[in-house]
Design a protein around this nucleic acid. Structure first.
Lengths: 146, 146
DNA sequence: GGCAAAGTTTAGCATTGGCTAAACTATATG
DNA sequence: CATATAGTTTAGCCAATGCTAAACTTTGCC
């Protein structure tokens, strides 16, 4: 450590990581929802609240509340008692999630992690990797048979 | 997809990942606190609320509240207006966090990620990697000059 | 010893993300 | 077409994590 650096600055630098984690957590749930909704639309033509609740492992009422927030955020649209749709922004976020997810999961598989673990871990890691790390993973993947 | 597998079972399998992420998030904050407190004790001989607050980038009052929860959880001890100590369980959790952190950060560096990004990303990833993935990372590290 | 600065705690508020139970709507079937 | 079942929503609860402002202790210095 250079002696010129003051205590407060070190702390500020360190706190950046934690600040980003808290920020990530805020967008994480939204990302999981829209990604899931996108999957359901692609698989079945429509996304229903019950399906979302089952896949996330939460109660129906929890989904209703979350969807209200996502609607306020301009990511989904919805009419009472009807299916759920994604807005343009919603699709964009979902696609971005899928992209990251695919890289991370493929990377873990290439690293030698088992399929079940790769699926579970990638879901958690996906929201905490920077673009720089994603590039490094993609590079590795390209070299080691992705 | 095998047609024999029912819808509900698929959903249950998928929801496992999200359930684990939610569980991880609950322990994540506790892990960050004790790891930080351990670092402060090692670096300066004592951990003060202000230092914790600065490094985490949160307000003092937030730390007080969190410490109360950690005390209830048996991870730290504390007397009013005095420094913070870790219990045996607290040290165990802190050590485990440091171990994971070291592996993940070293791994990212070996992957070719820059130092600053490795530090930040590892902080977020650390709480979402299974032991299996950690082993794979350690293996890679052993082979590629860790 | 007394006072100012630094650190800690309390009080009170907001948001997020969970839950259950009860009420309501849509749909499918007899 | 009437009704049962499936799905959705509302209401009301709780805990966690953040904040600011004000009150209180400790500490360091003259």
């Amino acid at each position: 450590m250079k002696p010129a650096r003051k205590k407060g600055q070190t702390a500020k630098l360190r706190s950046a990581a934690f600040r980003r984690i808290r920020a990530d957590h805020q967008t994480e749930l939204a990302g999981d929802y829209v990604e899931l909704i996108a999957d359901l639309i692609d698989e079945r033509g429509a996304a229903r609240g019950t399906d979302v609740a089952m896949r996330l492992g939460v109660a129906n009422a929890t989904v209703v509340k979350a969807l209200k927030r996502l609607q306020d955020a301009g990511l989904v649209t919805q009419e009472p008692y009807r299916a759920i749709f994604l807005t343009g922004d919603g699709w964009k976020l979902a696609e971005d999630g899928r992209r990251k997810h695919k890289i991370v999961e493929g990377f873990l598989l290439a690293l030698g992690v088992g399929a079940a673990t790769a699926r579970i871990d990638s879901e958690g890691i996906e929201h905490h990797v920077s673009e720089e790390t994603l590039r490094a993973m993609a590079r590795f993947l390209a070299r080691n048979g992705g």
